[in-house]
């Protein structure tokens, strides 16, 4: 049972305060804060490794990104993935979700021999949740999104799909694509042996030509959408703590303040 996991390297949300946006290029200034694997993708990797542990086969990790995304792949290898492929090419720069999905789909096709492709439900930087479903469409594969529990049977999978206030049980024949939520598992930590193995592992690199793609299909040219502007919202004013020993005192202090500011 072979699984492919598509991951994305994103700015570490633990450092959210330090995130800045370049006003000229309308992009995140990524080099200023540490990068990590998109948190939902960590769950995707964990699920793939668990499937391998139970059913055998191998786990291949794919990411599209700049050369430094190699670090994310090594982290995935340290967790226990078998193989890692970096899709990196200047031609890929500026890809929107559609161009990204087409590129990933080509890579998945090129890898071949898979039963399941797993994505995190969305990336925490773009938050679109589009790439997984788009890859499924591009490859004409069945898909189950927002999977919070997965059972693998002989030729099919059964996924619990979390929707608002309920869940659906969905079956699909393999090969197929799923996107997973945080609830699906508790990801493991990398081990020392894993880290050392990952350090020495070879990362396969594919560019546009390796995937047999044209300039028109990739990057900005292949994108149906374009980000016109991205900006930080103005900072909200600092909150003020209302002092007081008791709830009563705090309440009257608050009322007094609201009166003074002519709010009431």
């Amino acid at each position: 049972m072979n699984t492919i996991v598509c991951i994305k390297q994103v700015p570490d949300s633990e450092h959210i305060q330090e995130v800045t946006i370049n006003p000229e290029t309308n992009t995140l200034e990524r080099n200023k804060i540490p990068a990590v694997i998109n948190p939902f993708d960590v769950n995707a990797i964990e699920e793939a490794i668990r499937i391998k542990e139970k059913h055998g086969g191998k786990v291949t990790i794919v990411t599209m990104g700049p050369p430094q995304a190699e670090e994310a792949l090594r982290t995935a290898l340290a967790m226990g993935a078998d193989e890692a492929i970096l899709l990196t090419d200047m031609a890929f720069a500026g890809s929107d979700t559609w161009a990204t999905a087409k590129t990933l789909a080509k890579a998945v096709e090129k890898i071949g021999g898979f039963d399941l492709v797993i994505f995190g439900k969305q990336a925490i930087d773009g938050d679109t949740a589009q790439v997984g479903p788009e890859v499924a469409e591009a490859l004409s594969l069945p898909q189950i999104t927002y999977v919070s529990k997965l059972d693998v049977e002989d030729k099919k999978i059964k996924g619990r799909r979390t929707v608002e206030d309920a869940y659906e049980e969905v079956e699909a024949l393999m090969p197929c694509i799923i996107t997973v939520t945080k609830d699906i598992n508790e990801p493991r930590f990398a081990s020392i042996r894993g880290i050392l193995k990952a350090k020495k592992a070879e990362i396969i690199k594919w560019g546009k030509d390796d995937l047999g793609m044209s300039d028109e299909e990739t990057g900005l040219n292949g994108s149906a959408t374009q980000v016109v502007k991205i900006f930080s919202p103005p900072r909200r004013g600092k909150g003020e703590m209302i002092e007081g020993v008791s709830a009563d005192e705090k309440t009257s202090n608050l009322v007094e303040k609201l009166r003074a500011d002519k709010i009431i």
Binding site: P34, V36, A78, K199
Partner: peptide
């Protein structure tokens, strides 16, 4: 210093190691 750790630990019966260096882990 993973190499040092491996050297230290290989003499012992290590079942697993968990390592975290990014903020979340």
């Amino acid at each position: 210093e993973m190499d040092i750790w491996l050297e230290i630990l290989e003499k012992y019966s290590v079942v697993d190691t968990w390592f975290g260096d990014n903020a979340r882990d």
